[in-house]
Design a protein around this nucleic acid. Structure first.
Length: 479
RNA sequence: CGGGGAGUAGCGCAGCCUGGUUUAGCGCACCUCGCUUGGGACGAGGGGGUCGCCCGUUCAAAUCGGGUCUCCCCGACCA
């Protein structure tokens, strides 16, 4: 008999999405509320997930020639003010330090909302010649943005991210870099996080403050809202001019360098949770899951030692290739553990009991519960590997299907709103490029332009003014 | 920022309207013993609380009044 009160209950994902989201995070022990408004503690299980994501991305950054470095948390106010658009964009969200010890500071220090200013000030010192370029640096750090309303992982006052900051000799090279990093993000999101995305350029109104062009990749959440998963900016020479980053080119003339910056954050964890989870809890993509295989020994009393030894042996064998956890707690029944590890999103559960030992097999159950196949013990490494791949693939395919089913097209505002009501998601439209027309769309649909796709070309008429155009824009409500 | 809701044991809640009969209670969790264990077992016994915080009213405050902090939901804003 199931005693309802012993169960870690979570609200229905379908009926109560917001509460489901918060509840899963707390119960799976990914994070907890900190005693500081808008801040969270990322607990070991959640941090382990982040570390795996970091490793995946970091590998890609290094493979494309980037190196990690670290710059200060504090940004002098005068530095932040050097790029006009930049300071305008960020000042409402900046936290300031005005006092150190028992002395007032002569200049306020911003707690970095992003590091362009402090990093560019250093780049100005380091760049003299075209031979000093490119500079390809990334940093992993924390960021503070004083947000009015917050949600675990999706928007917190302090969050973790990586920010790449590069400098180049030419405009072309900077543009190539910005696009290259966008593609790396897309690859990471789709292949490692199983998050299908759309990607492209932001319209002027949605650009990063201080950028020449902003590229973005966006995922679609189950409630039909888009989430900006990360961005890559071509900064042009805006920051180089503001911070006097000049180099002497081969033709003996002084030129401003071209910059990029690109980043993604712990917000991605929120996207993973929302996309893959279900009423049983989390479902983590195998490639970044803190635990890929959890071993649950079935203990009866008599053969316990034999079963435990076998479980340990399996852990050793699988541990060479996968992230494995053996749940040998005696205070919980197997059934309790099954539910617990499903809630925590572990991709594969491995059961081993006396009956299995007799037959020389183990029971493997993927998180999506597609049956309970028994695998021969001798083939376990291969079978587990294949199953992890399957789970990874299934998560992606399911999310991809959802994304595709929720992209619709509209030629008029009426059609736009009708589509949005029927199946909330991305609405694809044509746009002439005029700000007035964009404002009308925002006003009448309560959505925002998410991106102008890069690899998609077509001709049509602006949804507002009817002017002929080749500019496609994906609109959606957004987080 | 606007509207609504919440804060009482680790978690989930009752008590509050009508202040004192509650030594603040219940379920789960936790500890001990027994019995169990392939989808969230059971029995007996036990430990655990300055009722978010501050101020006020009162002989007396979890309960009434004011303030404040934090969280949740909906919306606005923001990226």
């Amino acid at each position: 008999m199931q005693n309802e009160t012993t169960v870690k209950e979570i609200p229905s994902k379908k009926d109560n999405f917001s509460e489901w989201y918060t509840s899963v995070i707390l119960k799976a022990e990914l994070a907890d509320y900190a005693p500081v408004r808008g801040c969270m503690v990322i607990r070991p299980y959640g941090y382990s997930l982040w570390e795996n994501m970091q490793n995946s991305l970091d590998r890609r950054f290094k493979a494309t020639g980037h190196k990690n470095a670290y710059f200060p948390l504090f940004v002098p106010e005068s530095f932040l003010k050097k790029e006009a658009e930049h300071v305008k964009g960020f000042s409402p969200q900046v936290a300031w330090v005005t006092r150190g010890g028992d002395e007032d500071l002569t200049e306020r220090l911003a707690i970095r909302p992003t590091s362009e200013a402090i990093i560019c000030s250093m780049y100005a010192k380091w760049v003299k010649s075209y031979r000093d370029l490119p500079i390809l640096i990334n940093q992993w750090c924390n960021i503070v943005r004083w947000e009015k309303s917050t949600r675990l992982f999706l928007r917190t006052t302090e969050f973790l991210w990586q920010e790449g900051h590069t400098l180049h000799r030419t405009e072309t090279e900077a543009e190539e870099e910005a696009l290259k990093m966008l593609k790396i993000y897309v690859d990471f999101a789709e292949n490692d996080l199983a998050l299908p995305v759309i990607y492209g350029r932001k319209p002027e109104s949605e650009k990063f403050p201080g950028a020449l062009r902003t590229y973005t990749f966006e995922a679609l959440m189950p409630d039909g809202q888009a989430i900006q998963a990360g961005t890559s900016h071509n900064l042009g020479q805006h920051f180089a001019k503001a911070f006097e980053i000049k180099y002497l080119d081969a033709d003996n003339t002084e030129k401003y360098a071209w910059g990029t910056s690109w980043g993604c954050t712990t917000r991605l964890i929120g996207a993973i949770i929302m996309t893959h989870g279900d009423d049983s809890g989390l479902a983590l993509p195998p490639k970044v899951a803190p635990i890929q295989v959890v071993i649950v020994p079935i203990l009866y009393g008599k053969d316990d030692e034999k079963v435990l030894n076998k479980a340990k042996e399996l852990k050793e064998i699988l541990g060479e290739n996968y992230r494995v956890h053996l749940d040998d707690r005696i205070e919980y029944t197997p059934g309790w553990k099954f539910n617990e590890w499903e809630l925590r999103g572990v991709p594969i559960r491995l059961e081993i009991g006396p009956k299995d030992i007799e037959k020389g097999q183990v029971v493997l159950v993927p998180r999506d519960k597609t049956g309970k196949p028994a695998a021969k013990e001798t083939e376990i490494v291969r079978v587990v590997g294949a199953m992890l791949n399957d789970v990874q693939k299934n998560l992606f395919e399911r999310a991809k299907k959802f994304l595709e089913e929720n992209i619709s097209e509209a030629e008029t505002i009426e059609e736009f709103n009708k589509q949005l009501a029927q199946r909330p998601g991305f609405i694809k439209i044509f746009w002439c490029g005029k700000q007035e027309c964009e404002d009308v769309i925002r006003e009448k649909t309560k959505t925002t332009p998410r991106c102008i796709p890069l690899d998609e070309t077509d001709k049509g008429k602006c949804i507002i003014c009817g002017e002929r155009t080749e500019t496609i824009v994906y609109y959606a409500r957004a987080y």
